[in-house]
Write a protein that binds this DNA or RNA. Structure first.
Lengths: 104, 104
DNA sequence: TAATCATATCGAAGATTGTCTATTTGTCAA
DNA sequence: TTGACAAATAGACAATCTTCGATATGATTA
C-alpha cells in the first residue's frame, strides 16, 4: 500500500515537488498549476498522473475542471513507513512512529 | 543540507533501498553487500557512491576494506523535512516535528 | 448543434540512469 | 618487491524518464 520505492520515485523529481508545494495547502486546477509553472499543460498532466498513481493527490472533478490537492495524510504515512523501515534504532519513540503511521 | 529532491532521488531505486536495508543496522563491506545481492561489485560501488553523496551512509575505511552503514539519523531528519515541507497541516504536533528534525 | 474550453492521451526527441566489462588505485602478505 | 585482494573509476549500452507538439475526449455555452 505505502510502497517506499513507489513513494520515493513519485517524489524524486523537481517538477513534481514544485507541484506538490503549490497544491500542498489548497486545491488547484490543472490550468492554475500550469500558469504557475514554466511548462506545458500536457507535461503538468503527466506529472499529476504520476502523483495520482502514487496516491499522493486528492482529485475532485467539477464540471470541466479538475481540482488537485496534495494528500498530506498519505505523505505523512509514507514518511512514517520510511522511518520504520530504515531507521528503527533512531531516537524517535514508538509512540511518535505510531502517531505518524495513524494520523488523527 | 537536507534537500528533499536530492534525498528522494537517492532513495528512489530498488537496488539502493535493498542496500539500505542490508546496512541499516550493521556495518558491511562492499564485498559483503555484493555477496548478498545479484549484482556486480562495480554496480554496488556505484550505488554506494550515490548514497554517500546524499549523506545517507557512514563510511569507515579499515585496511583495505571499507565498511558502510546507513545513517539512520540523517534519514530521519530528511523524512522530517519532507513532512514539514509538504504536510504542514497534518496532525503531527510541532513537538514531534521538532523531535524528528533534531534527534537526540 | 456547433463552438469553445479544460484536461488527458499519444508518439517522438533528448536527457538521465542502471548495469555491465575492463581497468585502475590502494593495501596487505609472502 | 611481487602477487593477491578490496574497492573505485571509466566507458559503453540499454532502459527509463522528462518534455514537447499534436490530437482526442468530455463538458459547457451560444
Amino acid at each position: 500500500m505505502t510502497d517506499p520505492i513507489a513513494f520515493a520515485k513519485a517524489i524524486a523529481d523537481d517538477t513534481r515537488q514544485r507541484i506538490m508545494k503549490l497544491c500542498c495547502c489548497e486545491r488547484l486546477t490543472v490550468t492554475e498549476i500550469t500558469a504557475k509553472m514554466q511548462l506545458t499543460q500536457p507535461t503538468i498532466s503527466h506529472h499529476l498522473a504520476i502523483l495520482r498513481d502514487a496516491g499522493l493527490v486528492n482529485i475532485e472533478r467539477q464540471g470541466r475542471e479538475t481540482y488537485y490537492s496534495l494528500n498530506q495524510t498519505f505523505l505523512t504515512v509514507c514518511c512514517g513507513t520510511l522511518m520504520m523501515q530504515f531507521a528503527p534504532n533512531e531516537h524517535v519513540t514508538a509512540t511518535v512512529k505510531q502517531e505518524l503511521l495513524m494520523p488523527e
